[in-house]
């Protein structure tokens, strides 16, 4: 099964989904069938004042995940994820990583075709 990257505030399935993609604290890379996971820190992107989303997209891409679940993805990160062939599920803040995965498994997450808000500009 394809692995899923979920933006999270801490390295646990019960962590809240971090609403920000680019500036998320980190990502849980989860196998949606077994719920086995690994954690990638996103601290380096968090500290960036520019290009954080692009950097986070690179991080997710390197992890091998094929799907991203998060709150929102900025336009540049969106473009980058899209180019890497990674699918994007948004508006999943205000729940835990586990709940987001359940929702995804139940087929209740719409995969976005456009970014849902603009970034912070230059």
């Amino acid at each position: 099964m394809e692995k899923i990257a979920v933006s999270c505030e801490e390295p646990s399935l019960d962590s809240p989904v971090d609403p920000r993609f680019g500036r998320a604290a980190g990502f849980l890379i989860v196998d949606p069938d077994t719920l086995e996971f690994s954690y990638v820190d996103n601290g380096a992107s968090q500290a960036m004042s520019q290009g954080a989303g692009i950097q986070a997209a690179e991080t997710v891409c390197r992890s091998g995940a094929k799907v991203v679940l998060t709150g929102y993805v900025g336009p540049k990160a969106f473009q980058a994820l899209f180019a890497a062939g990674i699918k994007i599920g948004q508006n999943l803040e205000k729940m835990t990583v586990r709940q987001a995965i359940d929702k995804f498994n139940a087929g209740e997450v719409d995969m976005a075709t456009a970014p849902n808000r603009m970034g912070h500009g230059a």
Binding site: R117, M118, G119, H120, G121, A122
Partner: peptide, 10 residues
């Protein structure tokens, strides 16, 4: 320019 764009985003 740049600072104005940065103050509008979001």
């Amino acid at each position: 320019g740049c600072p104005v764009i940065a103050s509008l985003g979001g």
